[in-house]
Design a protein around this nucleic acid. Sequence first.
DNA 1: GGAAATTTGTACGTATGTATG
DNA 2: TCATACATACGTACAAATTTC
Lengths: 242, 242
Amino acid sequence: MKKRVSDSVVEYIRNKVETGEWPAGQKLPSEPGLAAQLGVGRSTVREAIQELVYAGYVNRIHGVGSFICEKTINYGMNEYMSLTALIQQNGYTANIRHIKLEITRPRKKHMELLGISELEPVYEVQRVFTADDKPIVFELAVYPCNLLPDVHAEDFEASSFKMLEKRGINIRHSNGWVSPKAADSEIAKLLEIPQNSPLLLMESVLCDQNGRAVAYVRDYFTETFKFPLHRIRNSSSGDSLD
Amino acid sequence: MKKRVSDSVVEYIRNKVETGEWPAGQKLPSEPGLAAQLGVGRSTVREAIQELVYAGYVNRIHGVGSFICEKTINYGMNEYMSLTALIQQNGYTANIRHIKLEITRPRKKHMELLGISELEPVYEVQRVFTADDKPIVFELAVYPCNLLPDVHAEDFEASSFKMLEKRGINIRHSNGWVSPKAADSEIAKLLEIPQNSPLLLMESVLCDQNGRAVAYVRDYFTETFKFPLHRIRNSSSGDSLD
DNA sequence: GGAAATTTGTACGTATGTATG
DNA sequence: TCATACATACGTACAAATTTC
């Protein structure tokens, strides 16, 4: 994937923060200033800063300036990213264990969400992600078999994104929802927690560059896990009640 | 809040979908086409569509076109919005009950997150949101008293956003995290669920137009609740592992 | 208090690159 | 090969909010 100029600007700013040159609360140079310094257009600088605002990294104040947030979030829930990276961000060492792959007939839900018929078999892939060797996430992923001819359990020992990319599939976004859920006996065993422990269930349908649904994923997060969240108030959500 | 031209374009598109004129999967007119039709610049159209992409409403494919998503999400977790509106979106009638307000000394966590000293008292506001008269969310909000001189429990019977706006405070974004959590006896009683039921805990620090922390909020969501979620893969999050 | 300077916000236009069919 | 449509990048002008003098 070719890097955009605005991505370089994002990187430039993140780097300034990471090296400590721009501490939390630091005022960024003005947009025209940054543009001149870096030899790019102001719109490009704005695009980069906008991205950082969305990510909860930078705070903009009209007529005053842009500032590095006090608590910079490196990755938020609204960015699609690696589970292992997310675990690392929580301050742990990440690993994958218990990889189980089987080919089955699709359930009704899978057929509906993935847009396939009952005649198309699917892969069901189970994985457990660990943080400092403690189970922290149980994942169940469902892929239509015809999308991934010839995969094996070993293909899931690392990035499933990368595995998909090798087969010409690029995950671009996901739709789904999160909800609280109690651990059933099977999941409790895999995550080494008592039955009925509270979990965060994240269900997602992954879509590729063509907007085609390519996977249905259920992630069960344990209580150890905190999902960073940055929310922006939408100007068009006018008449809020609370 | 003044409406931007791009907001009108957003509204125009949402309206086309709501009236059924553009069903799911419908291809939008080309960007220059839309711009010409509506008499606005192409950049403005792009800005509007970008917003809808972020919200999981529209899907863009390079070199092909933009399309209405199969499952349009009206509001996602990354948009800050009214709890009642969110409940309504889940298909229920929303209400607020059990409003309890008290003035206390700030806890250490509050002092840290709100940037206040132990000498500044805070309001602690408890509320229960119902869906079809069934409790669904328990909320505990903490505000520094000096920000809100002279508030009463009645002020929290409706929008706390509106209440804050009347006092010159505009919530613009929030930072926080979500995690699974078991219901303790007190919350279980208020939400009319068994103790240790799984809950989704959302903790947020609300910030105003000046980037100042103005409230610390804990929302406990019951299992009935599903939080829509749209995630976009960040191009710069390069080396993902899963 | 008011004018000027600074900084972000909005809107539009143009040129060129890239992907698709 | 070519036309179409989205993607990126730059530039300009003016509006709105804030700070400074």
